[in-house]
Every structure is written in structure tokens, then in C-alpha cells.
Design a protein around this nucleic acid. Sequence first.
DNA 1: CCAAAAGTGTTGACTGTACACCCATGT
DNA 2: ACATGGGTGTACAGTCAACACTTTTGG
Lengths: 246, 246
Amino acid sequence: MYNSHKIGALIILISITITHMQSSKKEGYFNPGVTVDVAIFTIEDNTLKILLIKRANEPFKGTPALPGGFIHKGESSLETAERILADKAGVKNVYIEQLYTFDESERDPRGQIISIAYFALVPREKLGIHEGSRTENPEFVSVENLDKLAFDHKKIIAYALKRLGDKILYTNIAYSLLPQSFTFSQLQKTYEIILGAPIDKRNFRKKFIQLDMIEETNEKLTGKRQRPAKLYRFKKKMPEKLKRFF
Amino acid sequence: MYNSHKIGALIILISITITHMQSSKKEGYFNPGVTVDVAIFTIEDNTLKILLIKRANEPFKGTPALPGGFIHKGESSLETAERILADKAGVKNVYIEQLYTFDESERDPRGQIISIAYFALVPREKLGIHEGSRTENPEFVSVENLDKLAFDHKKIIAYALKRLGDKILYTNIAYSLLPQSFTFSQLQKTYEIILGAPIDKRNFRKKFIQLDMIEETNEKLTGKRQRPAKLYRFKKKMPEKLKRFF
DNA sequence: CCAAAAGTGTTGACTGTACACCCATGT
DNA sequence: ACATGGGTGTACAGTCAACACTTTTGG
């Protein structure tokens, strides 16, 4: 049996050390917890959807939340985000960028924990079958009807939506939501969904051709009871700024 | 004299505790160090300048660096940035926004330490006299000729410059670099310095008036051996997006 | 032959860009 | 009187925004 006297001393020592680490050191700093949360978007059934999980643990156990987790030792936050993307959405090599770091003090009931938020876009076709990963049950839900979310995740999503809406206007990131080849209608729909407004078909085509981001393939989409649509592809599938605005 | 046996035990205990805090816990996460670095810009002598200090401690002792520091307990990163701004530049209530979080693993020789970078703009007139704060000697240097900097601070500055150049085109943040009232020439010069290119005087005036960001004061700037210039002021001194682009 | 979406041009308003001269003051 | 930066207008080209009809297919 343990000597309780020694254990008492041990506990005091550990407490002192933890306090020391968290709040003082000689410069007076401490290390907040660092997590990464990822806003993963896709387009499905003509709506913009985001991947949410149900929290398996406290705090907010059972509440929908963005997939996320703590940074592991030796891992950059981008690597953490990519790990989450692989674990929760089953995808790799998709569009991803850092969004913002959220660190308001009341955001996590466990104390001072910051979240480096990332923002990812995945074409529907790339998404694996949802492996009902334990109790978390990750699924894509429409961004229209989001209930109460854990932490400040509603705020993070709002920020991500703003970024997406801005960025689709001056970059080519739309490629990351569309399949390899697509019709002009699909492309236009993507813009309309993200911008939340209808666009004139003729003007859209003109503008897009002028922007020089896409090219025709030799194929057409047949099998619908209508005139077959030409299929297009993006010339480049790497993020870049446009010279002109959309 | 201390009992060396007890001290040995103490050291082992502390080591165990630190290791425990940093790398394991039951979920397998750890807390990287979290610092804040601030890119503080101003315009002086017709150049864009940034505030640099000389590092007082290792690593990179004596090397120029962005002013920065660890987050204190209970402080948000924004508050940390504002504290740095007050301590190193002697200003409060200036334009500040979060820039990006840098966390590539090789950025700090001490180990895994992330930097939440902020970006601030200060009108020259607001800056206090440089209090030769110890050995750090903060001073504004032209962004044109930056030598070797500590850590990845060159990268951070490059990122900040890009952000500034972008943002001056679609927001009214120029107000945060100019004095209360200013001439059209001063305003134009500000844009030219940031964009790094000359602008046609007539077109600049037309565009700016159309953007409706500024208004005339009743005063003129006299005392120069030339026609007195009308003084203008910004209508709003809060950051906002423009409806049209500059 | 009908329904459905694909595909295409023109016009008028507005915005961007290029460019050169007169004005008011201090010295 | 002259040097210095302050201040203004016009013309052409390009872009934006609004709008309606024909084409090609499958059923």
C-alpha cells in the first residue's frame, strides 16, 4: 500500500508544477489549449451543406459541432486539420485553408482553449460513405437550418460562409466543389447557391468564358430528355486569384 | 544546505509532470506555446514603415523582430496584441485585426510554439516618442530594406503587406494611417505608397469622391508657397467594406 | 409534338483610363 | 515673376445589366 504521506507531497508538488506551467514561469505566460476545428462544405441536392458531428464527450455532449480536436505533438495545425478531414469525412487532397483563430475567453467552458479554424471544400463525389464513426455520426447538414451548436461554432460557420462567398468572386476555388467535368448549368448553380441569388444565364456564360478559367471537353451530357449539354473542365485545379472579378 | 537527494527527486517529479502536460494526457494532445506577434505599420517620410525591436533574449538575441510575446492567463490574443501595441508603440485605440496563425514546426528553435499574428495601422502623429525601452529599442524601419529577421517574421511581414495592399482597395482602412484632416495629395500618396505604383491625379479624385468616404472640411492648408489645399476628413472612422472597389 | 433545359446577341448605362492646362499662393 | 503643387474636363474603350427567342434531345 502506498504511503499516504508521500502521495500527499506528490500531489502538492504536481499542483505547484502545473500552476507554475500554466500561469507564471518567469515571463508570466502560460499555454492555453490549442484545438483545430474544420468547416467542411460540399454541395448536395442543390444546397450548401456542412459536416457536423454529435459530440461524444463533455462539454456539449450530444450537441452538434464542427469536427475538431487537439493538436498532436509535432503536428502543425494544417496537419491536424487534414487528419480530421481524413478521419471524419474520409477525404484527402481537398481544398483547405486556414480561416481564423478563435480565442474569446468564454468560448470553451473548460477554460482558455483557442481554436484554429480551417475551411475545406469537397466535391460531393469524393466523399466516402459515412462510416457511422462511433457515436459521433458525422453528417452533412444544410447551412440553412442549423440548430444550437456547441461552443462558438455557429460563429465560426458564419465566418466561413462569408469567406466562401467572398472568395468565390475573386478566385477559382469553385473547382473544388465541382466534379472533374460539369455543365454550365451545374457551374452556375454552384455560384447561385453560394451567393444566394439567381444569376442571368447569358451574362454568366459570357463572364465565365472571358475569365478563362474553364475549357470545353469533347463530351456532352446525354440521356436527359433535353438538348445535351457540353461538358467543361477547369483549366487549373490549383487555387489562384483571378485578374478580374467575377 | 539542501539535501541533494530530495532535490533530485523533485527534479524528476517536475520533469515527469512537464512531460505529462506537454505530450500525453489521456487524449494524446499537448499544449504548444502560444505567442502573439504584431505587424505595426505607419507612414513616415513617404515610406511605409514597420515597428521592429531588437530581441533582448535568446533565441535570436540581438536580431530585429516583430514585437510580440506570450499570451497571459485570462487574456485573449487580441488583448495581448493591444498590450504589445501599448507597451512597444505607446498607442491605444488604433486599427487592429488578426492576420493569420503561423505554426510551422521549424519556426521557433525552442520547439512547438505558434504565433497568432496581428496587423495594426497607426497614423504617424499618434505615435509617442520612442521610449528606448531597455535594450529592445523599438523603431520604425522602412519595409523596403529589411535584413535578416528573427523566426519567420519576414514571412509574417510579407503576409501583412499583402493583406494591407488588398484591403486598402475594398475597405476604408486608409483612415487609420492618415491624420484627422488631410489633403488630397496626402491621401493619394498613401495609396501610392501602399500599392507601390503612381496613380493619375484626376482619376484618383474622381474615384474617391464617388466612393463617398470623405468630406470637405472648411479649412485649407496654407503656409506653403503654392495654392492652399482643401482639407478633407473621413466620414466614418470605423472599418467597413466599400460597395465599389477602389 | 411536347416538355425541358441548352444555347445565343444586342443595346444603353456606366465605369475605367488616358491625357494637358490653368490657378493660387509664398518667396 | 516664377516655382510649386492644387485643381479641373473630355473622349474612347471596356464592362455591366437587362432582356427573349431558337435549338436539340427524350419520351
